[in-house]
Amino acid sequence: MKPQSCVNINKEWDIVGARQLGRDIAKKMGFGTVDQARIATAISELARNIYLYAEEGQICFEVIDNLPQRGMRMIAVDTGPGIKDIGQVMQDGFSTSGGLGAGLPGVKRLMDEFDLQSEASKGTRINAVKWLR
């Protein structure tokens, strides 16, 4: 496993930086155009959540190379207020998505694996994986 590469998220422009780094890694690993676009969109959603609700956090990428499976992991960590009702934010049509299909349920759809841990006033950690097919 390669060491992590991370992007700090403090301002809106950092979202673009995170997308760029994520896309470069995805491209190098051999993800197709559609999956590259999906990965970039998932990064956007994760980074925007940090920017909007936590103010500070980072997104890290890891290449998973356990043959025969290869994939890309992204981890979003913040020290924000945490998510009180995880069930609610994972519901379609709730909050940030507002029926636009984005938000965390969108990330879950875009990726193959999705895991979320959050503690009130401590922060949130989201771990998502896209497998290379």
């Binding site: 155009t33 970039a40 379609d92 299909g101 984005a102």
Partner: peptide, 24 residues
């Protein structure tokens, strides 16, 4: 064409959400 593909991603997500809400 790649640009168009990127523009379609969010639309595709919204469509999936809509499908799921219909099932619900």
């Amino acid at each position: 064409m790649n640009f168009l593909l990127e523009a379609m991603i969010a639309y595709g997500l919204a469509h999936q959400e809509y499908q799921q809400l219909r099932e619900k």
